[in-house]
Amino acid sequence: MFKRLMMVALLVIAPLSAATAADQTNPYKLMDEAAQKTFDRLKNEQPQIRANPDYLRTIVDQELLPYVQVKYAGALVLGQYYKSATPAQREAYFAAFREYLKQAYGQALAMYHGQTYQIAPEQPLGDKTIVPIRVTIIDPNGRPPVRLDFQWRKNSQTGNWQAYDMIAEGVSMITTKQNEWGTLLRTKGIDGLTAQLKSISQQKITLEEKK
């Protein structure tokens, strides 16, 4: 169930391209415009997507990853294993993690069937560096609404905000991946996880038929 919630949630996290980005210092504006741009692209490019579902990787690479804190999220997933990894191991892992996100997020976007969304009203940021933004996803086919909290983090150097995690039903996506990959990290280390991520990233994206 959580895996499905995570995939549905990713439908609204794909941010804007650099040329049309919203105010990078306001995570609420980023979330709002990102959702609108993403849904528009999914709707307008269905012919290309249906002809070649792996085209979704391109959308992810162009529109999402430049505005997601990939390395920060990847380091959180590694936890204690990050500090013990060599620079070469980290570089290989982050490259594999990025390719994994292209496949995983692309597969999530393949679930698009006309969903709509509501974003919580903007709250004062103050001096906060981590801000959760509640998004409610509404399914046109009558499924119950899904309420999610996207975690946005302020870059201490640039002042810009980027998304790095999502919490559904009190469970963090980062925590879920830590639990899912924990045994592999304990037995085969970061190299074993890197190899698995490379394998997963090679899987073809498949479209979910409308139910």
Results as ranks from 00 to 15, higher is better:
residue 47 P to S: 11
residue 31 M to P: 00
residue 168 A to E: 09
residue 126 G to D: 13
residue 190 I to N: 08
residue 60 V to P: 02
residue 10 L to C: 04
residue 81 Y to S: 10
residue 38 T to A: 06
residue 201 S to M: 15
residue 157 Q to N: 05
residue 25 T to L: 08
residue 185 L to V: 03
residue 80 Q to N: 05
residue 38 T to M: 14
residue 125 L to K: 10
residue 172 S to T: 11
residue 170 G to N: 02
residue 112 Y to T: 05
residue 34 A to K: 05
residue 210 K to I: 11
residue 20 T to R: 12
residue 38 T to Y: 07
residue 17 S to M: 14
residue 45 E to L: 06
residue 183 T to C: 04
residue 175 T to V: 08
residue 181 W to C: 15
residue 172 S to P: 00
residue 74 G to C: 05
residue 174 I to L: 12
residue 15 P to T: 15
residue 4 R to T: 15
residue 118 Q to P: 11
residue 130 I to D: 00
residue 77 V to R: 01
residue 52 N to M: 08
residue 96 A to V: 13
residue 3 K to Q: 10
residue 141 N to E: 07
residue 19 A to T: 08
residue 90 R to F: 03
residue 134 R to I: 04
residue 65 L to C: 05
residue 81 Y to H: 12
residue 140 P to C: 15
residue 172 S to R: 12
residue 22 A to P: 09
residue 40 D to A: 13
residue 189 G to H: 00
residue 2 F to H: 02
residue 50 R to I: 09
residue 195 A to W: 11
residue 94 F to H: 07
residue 29 K to P: 14
residue 94 F to I: 10
residue 140 P to E: 15
residue 157 Q to T: 07
residue 83 K to Q: 08
residue 205 I to T: 09
residue 26 N to W: 04
residue 75 A to V: 02
residue 136 T to H: 13
residue 157 Q to G: 07
residue 210 K to E: 07
residue 62 Q to E: 13
residue 104 A to D: 03
residue 47 P to I: 09
residue 206 T to A: 03
residue 197 L to P: 13
residue 195 A to K: 10
residue 16 L to E: 05
residue 158 T to P: 07
residue 62 Q to N: 10
residue 58 T to M: 07
residue 145 P to Q: 07
residue 170 G to Y: 02
residue 129 T to M: 08
residue 170 G to E: 03
residue 122 E to K: 15
residue 71 K to W: 02
residue 78 L to K: 00
residue 184 L to V: 03
residue 208 E to G: 09
residue 193 L to G: 06
residue 183 T to G: 06
residue 69 Q to D: 02
residue 100 Y to K: 03
residue 192 G to R: 15
residue 171 V to N: 05
residue 183 T to V: 05
residue 56 L to D: 04
residue 174 I to R: 09
residue 52 N to A: 12
residue 27 P to C: 15
residue 125 L to G: 15
residue 128 K to N: 06
residue 159 G to N: 11
residue 150 F to H: 02
residue 112 Y to I: 01
residue 62 Q to D: 10
residue 190 I to S: 03
residue 92 A to I: 13
residue 25 T to D: 09
residue 89 Q to T: 09
residue 44 N to H: 15
residue 149 D to T: 03
residue 88 A to C: 12
residue 166 M to R: 04
residue 94 F to E: 06
residue 107 Q to E: 08
residue 189 G to Q: 11
residue 50 R to P: 08
residue 81 Y to F: 07
residue 16 L to F: 15
residue 110 A to M: 14
residue 204 K to R: 13
residue 165 D to Q: 05
residue 200 I to A: 02
residue 206 T to D: 14
residue 108 A to K: 06
residue 160 N to A: 00
residue 3 K to C: 01
residue 161 W to K: 04
residue 2 F to T: 02
residue 95 A to D: 10
residue 191 D to E: 05
residue 51 A to I: 09
residue 156 S to R: 04
residue 164 Y to S: 00
residue 46 Q to P: 05
residue 88 A to E: 13
residue 155 N to Q: 02
residue 181 W to Q: 15
residue 138 I to D: 12
residue 83 K to V: 06
residue 9 A to I: 12
residue 85 A to Q: 14
residue 42 L to D: 04
residue 85 A to K: 04
residue 165 D to S: 00
residue 42 L to T: 09
residue 125 L to P: 10
residue 7 M to W: 07
residue 137 I to N: 15
residue 47 P to Q: 12
residue 116 T to P: 15
residue 84 S to D: 10
residue 23 D to R: 08
residue 134 R to L: 02
residue 155 N to Y: 01
residue 47 P to R: 10
residue 187 T to G: 11
residue 143 R to I: 04
residue 95 A to K: 13
residue 50 R to L: 07
residue 197 L to Y: 15
residue 157 Q to F: 01
residue 203 Q to W: 09
residue 210 K to S: 13
residue 45 E to F: 06
residue 209 E to W: 14
residue 16 L to A: 09
residue 25 T to R: 07
residue 12 V to A: 06
residue 87 P to V: 09
residue 52 N to Q: 12
residue 115 Q to I: 03
residue 26 N to F: 08
residue 104 A to C: 13
residue 102 K to V: 14
residue 117 Y to P: 05
residue 39 F to R: 01
residue 82 Y to V: 02
residue 30 L to K: 15
residue 25 T to Y: 10
residue 51 A to W: 08
residue 43 K to M: 07
residue 6 M to L: 08
residue 175 T to C: 02
residue 204 K to A: 04
residue 16 L to K: 04
residue 5 L to P: 01
residue 122 E to C: 11
residue 1 M to A: 00
residue 164 Y to G: 07
residue 96 A to D: 12
residue 110 A to G: 13
residue 93 Y to R: 00
residue 164 Y to I: 02
residue 94 F to S: 08
residue 45 E to A: 12
residue 100 Y to T: 13
residue 75 A to Y: 00
residue 40 D to W: 06
residue 4 R to P: 02
residue 184 L to E: 07
residue 34 A to T: 09
residue 22 A to F: 08
residue 53 P to K: 11
residue 93 Y to H: 06
residue 173 M to N: 01
residue 90 R to Q: 06
residue 6 M to C: 04
residue 197 L to H: 15
residue 198 K to W: 09
residue 145 P to R: 08
residue 101 L to E: 06
residue 139 D to M: 13
residue 130 I to Y: 07
residue 172 S to E: 00
residue 28 Y to P: 02
residue 121 P to L: 09
residue 205 I to K: 15
residue 119 I to Q: 05
residue 53 P to Q: 12
residue 111 M to D: 01
residue 82 Y to H: 05
residue 197 L to A: 00
residue 185 L to R: 14
residue 80 Q to F: 06
residue 51 A to S: 12
residue 97 F to S: 07
residue 105 Y to F: 03
residue 171 V to Y: 11
residue 119 I to T: 08
residue 14 A to P: 07
residue 110 A to R: 11
residue 58 T to H: 08
residue 60 V to Y: 03
residue 4 R to Y: 15
residue 188 K to D: 14
residue 136 T to M: 10
residue 208 E to T: 14
residue 105 Y to L: 02
residue 147 R to K: 02
residue 104 A to M: 08
residue 142 G to I: 12
residue 101 L to R: 03
residue 93 Y to E: 03
residue 75 A to C: 05
residue 127 D to E: 08
residue 129 T to A: 00
residue 187 T to Q: 07
residue 128 K to I: 11
residue 163 A to T: 15
residue 187 T to I: 10
residue 41 R to L: 03
residue 43 K to S: 15
residue 110 A to D: 07
residue 29 K to Y: 12
residue 188 K to W: 08
residue 198 K to F: 15
residue 66 P to M: 06
residue 48 Q to I: 07
residue 72 Y to K: 01
residue 176 T to H: 03
residue 153 R to W: 00
residue 3 K to R: 03
residue 39 F to M: 01
residue 57 R to E: 14
residue 181 W to A: 04
residue 41 R to T: 08
residue 13 I to C: 12
residue 40 D to R: 10
residue 38 T to W: 04
residue 118 Q to S: 12
residue 13 I to T: 04
residue 1 M to L: 02
residue 152 W to P: 02
residue 180 E to Q: 04
residue 19 A to P: 04
residue 183 T to M: 08
residue 57 R to P: 14
residue 111 M to C: 02
residue 203 Q to P: 11
residue 204 K to C: 09
residue 180 E to A: 01
residue 136 T to R: 11
residue 8 V to E: 00
residue 148 L to H: 12
residue 109 L to Q: 04
residue 150 F to R: 04
residue 113 H to D: 06
residue 53 P to F: 11
residue 6 M to F: 10
residue 58 T to V: 15
residue 113 H to Q: 06
residue 143 R to F: 05
residue 93 Y to A: 03
residue 74 G to M: 04
residue 46 Q to K: 06
residue 168 A to L: 08
residue 196 Q to L: 15
residue 174 I to D: 12
residue 101 L to F: 12
residue 141 N to D: 07
residue 86 T to A: 09
residue 151 Q to R: 05
residue 114 G to P: 05
residue 152 W to K: 03
residue 174 I to T: 13
residue 36 Q to T: 15
residue 204 K to Y: 09
residue 160 N to W: 11
residue 63 E to C: 05
residue 133 I to E: 05
residue 167 I to F: 02
residue 156 S to H: 03
residue 149 D to R: 04
residue 176 T to Y: 03
residue 55 Y to S: 09
residue 23 D to P: 11
residue 166 M to I: 01
residue 62 Q to F: 09
residue 8 V to H: 01
residue 44 N to G: 12
residue 186 R to K: 02
residue 69 Q to F: 01
residue 189 G to N: 05
residue 172 S to M: 02
residue 40 D to I: 08
residue 138 I to H: 11
residue 2 F to C: 03
residue 195 A to R: 11
residue 171 V to R: 03
residue 123 Q to E: 12
residue 36 Q to H: 14
residue 17 S to G: 11
residue 97 F to C: 06
residue 150 F to K: 05
residue 71 K to T: 08
residue 199 S to F: 13
residue 66 P to A: 06
residue 111 M to K: 11
residue 45 E to R: 05
residue 110 A to W: 13
residue 132 P to M: 10
residue 4 R to A: 12
residue 30 L to Q: 15
residue 68 V to I: 14
residue 31 M to Q: 07
residue 24 Q to I: 09
residue 211 K to D: 08
residue 168 A to F: 14
residue 78 L to Y: 00
residue 134 R to D: 01
residue 17 S to V: 13
residue 185 L to K: 07
residue 57 R to T: 15
residue 26 N to I: 09
residue 145 P to H: 04
residue 189 G to I: 07
residue 86 T to L: 10
residue 8 V to Q: 01
residue 194 T to A: 00
residue 192 G to K: 11
residue 99 E to M: 14
residue 120 A to P: 14
residue 125 L to T: 12
residue 80 Q to K: 09
residue 140 P to R: 15
residue 75 A to E: 02
residue 208 E to S: 07
